[in-house]
Design a protein around this nucleic acid. Sequence first.
DNA 1: CGAGATTCATGTGAAGTATACCTTTAGGCTTAA
DNA 2: AAGCCTAAAGGTATACTTCACATGAATCTCGTA
Length: 409
Amino acid sequence: MAEQKLNQLFEKFLKKESLFENKSVLQSQYVPEELNHRDDQINQIAAILAPALKNNKPSNLFVYGKTGTGKTVALKYVSQKLTEVAKQQEIPLKILYLNCKLKRVADTEYRLIAQLARMLGRQIPITGLPTDEVYNTFFELVEEEQANIILVLDEIDQLINKAGDDIIYNLTRINADLQKSQITIVGISNDLVFADNLDPRVKSSLSEEEIVFPPYNALQIQTILHARAQKAFKVGSITQGVIQKCAAYAAREHGDARRALELLRVAAEVAERGETEQVLIEHVDVAEEKIERDRLVELVRTQPKQFQATLYSIFTLQEKQKLSKPTERQKIHTGDVYDIYREICKRINLRPLTQRRISDILGELDMLGVINAKVISKGRYGRTREISLSLSQTIEPKVLDILKEDLVV
DNA sequence: CGAGATTCATGTGAAGTATACCTTTAGGCTTAA
DNA sequence: AAGCCTAAAGGTATACTTCACATGAATCTCGTA
């Protein structure tokens, strides 16, 4: 029975014409041939990094801009061109790109250097080695390359917030000892003011050059979407207004082009799965919710058990409050969360962490954007975090399901 | 009535601990001459 | 005797705990107008 159904589904799938000509064009890793509205920035980046082709060390570079303003793609674009030329001319040049935000990959000093060493082709264990040892290995690998090496560290603000700024200092200092190679650091940050709290030495060495990426406006996003859509879709797959709508949504969010592209892609996927021949404007609305939902579901699912338990107790508290006083939404405090958390731990047989740790976890959940947690003083009644879930009503139940499932509540 | 002291609940920094993993080394066993 | 395997020793990073102190506005206290 089930098999028959499946077969039908597959047959249908095969028969049906896809709306996509080339879906990868809309994926976020894709680097297009032409980048719209970023000529200035690209030229600047290229000019700064070009000395690498003459075997000189380029200046370190620091790139700012909000999410989806094309920082990453511009860097990747220049990187590609640069490596192409270097290859043709047989100039030794290597560009390593690494996103520092990735949890458990590059969010500490050890892990960052280890990851870089891995990218140069050496296996490094996840723990156990002294950090200097890993530095030495990395140093050797770099020296072996006998090349200009450019490290592109994306979302570097996250790394430095967590692990301190000596990392950058150490990395820049390595250059002094290198004989046959040189490394250049390119930092990318979403946080515009982040460099202000940096150690002055680190700041001056990291931002020898600075480039700012301003947000796109709605019109610019439209041209970007048009260009990509032309490659991605078969002719006539999208109806009038879809692109405008995607652009409008994204412009509302400080001109986030990545979001716009994702919106367009997911809208098309929704349309394809449904029985429609074209992407309609309604699909964009569905897509917007789906993106948010999928993102959060994935985020919550990949959190450690303790984080999930903490989050679950916040859910529980919120439900309780809704029941007792549906009208006024009072604030949740750290102590309450901790009490419930302990109960939950008992129930699901999880070793409870201390309140100290839960406090940190609440901070991290706040960073992840799952909850809102603000430290406030209630005067006579102490100091605490004021916590509330920051999920939209439509997504909450879904996330709650994931939690229940994962925690076996 | 208002300036200062007090208070509460928890934030937060520093130092210590447990765990999981690493390399090195010494001992024991096998093997080949 | 040389070579190989194994297990113990000694070391590290990371997540977490323990300890101790910091915070900051509502509330209290008390001198003064």
